[in-house]
């Protein structure tokens, strides 16, 4: 099994934590790093963060479950955040969400059987001028049409197969 974090990552955080007067300020950074490497933050991930920063697991857990971009459950390789806020809604956001569900055969909140895509509704992505928009992982896609969506999905499938 692959390690939750590489030793050099753990060392870097431990060093930073020792240097700052308030190690807790690193929690979100650390959770993001654990997630980047593992795709999500497992119970073991929460425990590891607690160990590195010298705080209790519950103090980590109440943050990990508060932030919606920290996943406490496994997600697909490509978490698809579909904006359902007002500007995207006003320019066809609902169609985008529907199309994705139809094309991928899963509902919002679910992951495709091949483990590639998880559909997650999200609030505004700060791309209101390019509505409707989605974010896949940390990549932003705006001015979407259903045809454009199909192309993106196809591309990512190819990328995953490579």
């Amino acid at each position: 099994m692959k390690k939750l974090l590489l030793k050099k990552q753990i060392d870097a955080f431990s060093k930073k934590a020792a240097k700052t007067a308030h190690p807790r300020e690193l929690v979100v950074d650390l959770l993001r790093e654990i997630q980047d490497r593992n795709g999500w933050v497992s119970d073991e991930g929460v425990e590891l963060a607690a160990q590195i920063l010298g705080v209790t697991t519950i103090e980590i857990e109440e943050l990990a479950t508060f932030y919606d971009k920290i996943y406490r459950q496994p997600v697909g390789r490509y978490p698809v955040h579909i904006c359902d806020s007002i500007c995207c809604w006003s320019r066809g956001g609902e169609e985008i969400a529907l199309h994705l569900q139809q094309q991928l055969g899963v509902k919002l909140g679910e992951t495709t059987p091949d483990g590639l895509f998880t559909l997650l509704p999200t609030c505004c992505l700060g791309g209101c001028g390019r509505a409707p928009s989605i974010m896949i992982g940390r990549r932003f896609y705006g001015n979407l049409s259903t045809a454009e969506l199909d192309r993106i999905i196809e591309q990512l499938r190819e990328e995953a197969n490579r």
Binding site: H22, P23, R24, E25, L26, V27, V28, D29, L31, R32, L53, L63, F66, Y67, D68, K69, I70, T122, C123
Partner: peptide, 21 residues
């Protein structure tokens, strides 16, 4: 400081709690 979502963090005192971890 990179955040991890949630609109309430824009409220300045929530943001301070967020910064403090």
């Amino acid at each position: 400081h990179g955040s991890a979502g949630r609109y309430i963090l824009g409220e300045e005192t929530a943001l301070l709690n967020g910064l403090e971890g």
